[in-house]
Structures are given as C-alpha cells and as structure tokens.
Amino acid sequence: MKTLEIVSLKEIPEVHSHDYHQLVAPLSGSAEFEIAELSGRLDSGRGCILPSMVRHGFAGDGSNRILLINLPTNMVAVEHQAIFRHYGWFTIDAGLMQLLAATHHELTLFPNDKHLQSSLVDCLLRGLNLRFANNKQISSKMDMQAITDYLARNLDRAIHVADLARLACLSESQFHSQFRKTHQSTPHQYLLQLRLNYACDLLKENDTSIANIAQLSGFSSQCALTHAMKKYLGVSPGKYRQRVQGEA
C-alpha cells in the first residue's frame, strides 16, 4: 500500500472497506461516493474522509484523477487523529487546492521518494486539521447545502445531531454552535420547522390519513404531530386541512 497514490476511478460501482484510514481528494473530474448512510459528489470543491473499516461505495464520473492518502491507523500522528474520528466530507478551498496541486506535481517528479511523500502528507493533514479547528468547513455554502439536502431526504427518519455533525466533520458542540450562527436556530428547531412545513404541504395536497402524514414527516405518532401543530401553529391537523382545502 502506497501512502500517496493517484488513481482513476472506474464508472462501474465498487463497494468495500479497508483496515487503514484514507483521505480522498479529486485532482480532476468527479466521482460519486456513498459513505455509510451519506451520499454525495466528490469534485473540485469537496473531498472525503474514510476512517478504517467504514464501508463505502464509489464510481467515477467519466475521466477523473483522484489523490488517495492511505494511512495505517497506528501511523497517524497524535495531532492528526481527530481528523479520522468521523467519516464525511471536507471542503477543498483555494489553499487546499494549491496544496493538492503541489502534491500532485511533486509526486509526479519524485514518485519513489518516501521522505517527500511523508512531508507532503503531513502538510496536507496539518492544513486540514487547522481548518477543522477554525470551523471553516461548516461555514461554506456547499457544506450547509449538503446538510439541508440530507435533512430533506431523511425527514421520515430519526435524525440526530451526531449524524449532522459527522456529515460536517465537526464535533457535536462545534456543529451546534456553527448551525445556530448560520440559521439563528438550533438544529432541533430547524428540523422541527422542516417537519411541520412538510406535514402542512401534505395536508394541503391530498387526503392521506393524518397518521400516515405524521409518519412521512418524521413525527413519532399522530399525537406528536397534533401536539406540535397546536403548539406552533395554533391549529390541529384536521382543522388545518379543513381550512386550507376550503380555501382552494
């Protein structure tokens, strides 16, 4: 196993896991990745973190060149271990893009110099670690869009802050703080509002049972939906349906 390698991912999907940590960053082109329950696109603005033994699937999208950083778990320096506590995505900003380009250039010139490779890896990990420490990853529009997309796709499931923090590659406390700064509400409040909005849309559009609408919008029961609507909207689901359908 090489510490640094450049590969082209085939368009035929593959699924596997491995007993070492891996960072994946595109040099050109793009690829689709699915990491546990998270799916997304690997492109010029985003790379992914794959801790050891995390099952993941991937497929290249046409022509692509991907930089892989492969790290045995016992060879990761203490100061870099936090990077691999969670799987998920990281933003490739202009600075990281330059580091990746320089790494590609040096690796092409000196493909067998292990000391150079070690230094390049340490530089990339250090840059990524500093960005995580400064919370810059979650502040980007791309990452916030990934989070809101994830919420929209999974409204009918139980969603925990830990899931969202993992998607953003942050600790739960860091994620909670950054989310409040961005949305002026807690993740729980934001998710509840999404669920209520979706439930109201369903009540407007069709005659599906209220119990089924509660399930589709992620409430634990019809009673939970009724309680939330009465508390925040001042009306029960049945009364809301009568009112909006009467106005149609």
Results as ranks from 00 to 15, higher is better:
A158G: 09
I92Q: 04
L23M: 04
Y198H: 13
T208F: 03
H104C: 06
L194I: 03
N70L: 10
L50W: 04
S17I: 00
L38F: 14
Q22I: 02
S217I: 03
A162H: 08
Q117N: 08
D113Y: 14
L130C: 03
A36V: 00
H188F: 15
V15F: 06
Y232T: 03
R46E: 00
I83C: 02
A94K: 11
I35G: 03
L164Q: 05
S171N: 07
A248V: 12
T108A: 11
E247L: 05
V7S: 03
L194T: 01
V78P: 11
Y150V: 10
Y20G: 05
L109T: 08
L124W: 03
M53T: 04
V244E: 01
S171V: 09
L4F: 11
K239V: 03
Q145M: 10
L202N: 08
A31F: 09
L23Q: 06
Q22K: 09
I213Q: 05
M1H: 14
S8D: 02
C200A: 06
L155H: 07
I92K: 01
H115A: 12
Y232L: 10
R180A: 14
S28N: 15
G29K: 12
L196R: 09
I138W: 01
E11K: 14
G29E: 15
R243P: 00
A211V: 05
L170Y: 01
M1G: 15
I147Q: 13
S177K: 12
L233A: 08
V54P: 00
F179Y: 12
H80C: 01
R241V: 07
R85K: 14
L68M: 12
Q81K: 11
L164H: 09
Q174V: 07
L202C: 11
A165I: 07
E34T: 14
E11Y: 06
S118L: 03
D156S: 11
L23G: 07
S171H: 04
T148R: 05
H104K: 13
A101M: 11
L164T: 05
V121Y: 04
L233H: 07
G246M: 13
L216G: 03
Q174M: 09
L96K: 01
V24L: 04
H176M: 14
F175K: 00
D122W: 01
R65E: 13
A199R: 15
N64V: 07
D61A: 11
Q193A: 05
V161C: 15
G238N: 06
Q145V: 00
E34A: 08
M53G: 05
Q22H: 02
Q193E: 02
A168C: 03
M142K: 02
S139I: 11
M144K: 09
L9G: 02
K10T: 09
R166I: 00
K10E: 13
C223Y: 09
D201A: 02
A102I: 08
L203I: 05
T208N: 13
Y20K: 13
H86G: 12
A158E: 09
N112W: 13
K114P: 10
I49N: 00
L196D: 08
M142A: 03
G62T: 01
F33T: 10
I83Y: 03
V76A: 08
Y20P: 00
P26C: 06
N135S: 14
M229N: 10
A162Q: 10
H227Y: 09
G88P: 12
Q174R: 14
P187Y: 15
